[in-house]
Amino acid sequence: MEPWQRAEIPGPVKAVLITKPEVVSALIKRARRPLFVVGTGTLEGRGEKLPLDHVIRIARAGGIPVVATAQTAVELRKRGFQPAARMAMVEICSRLTDPRWSLQGDGQPHDLVLMMGLGPYYMEWLMGSGLKSFAPHLRTISLNRFYQPHCSWSFPNLSEEEWYKNLERIAEELER
């Protein structure tokens, strides 16, 4: 699988491809303390639903706290969803490298981080690599439309239609 942006080369350790969305639901269900980090890339899309709407459905179904970056929180609140926190992308990702840090502040770290729309593709690439290198206690899942090889799991490059179907399937599995 090739990364979406040309010339981005990750190295020997690459994300496992998510070929079945059920795998993501299972990983979320198994996680002790998951977290969803969501950026402004989720505000861009065609059709009735934005990627952000899928974020809300998955977060609600999985009971996953959401950290929203930049102005994403505004759009979440407009949709009646209160994020657990608003932080800049580098602020949340750097904290996630600290094995004693969690949103709850009780010293029990997160063990699974879902990411979607963290700015432009290359910015999420770098956040993924920062976590891969310096947060060995974490597993990361990119729910972006395009392959993010620095995460532990990632979708391959998908059409918008396929991507939305996958996201819906994850939510359905969690809602069961």
Partner: peptide
């Protein structure tokens, strides 16, 4: 807070070296 492009160092003939994880 470091954000590598890739896992590798390729600055000398020992390498490429995998610095991941």
């Amino acid at each position: 807070f470091y954000l590598p492009f890739c896992d590798l160092c390729c600055l000398c003939t020992f390498g490429k070296c995998d610095l991941s994880k």
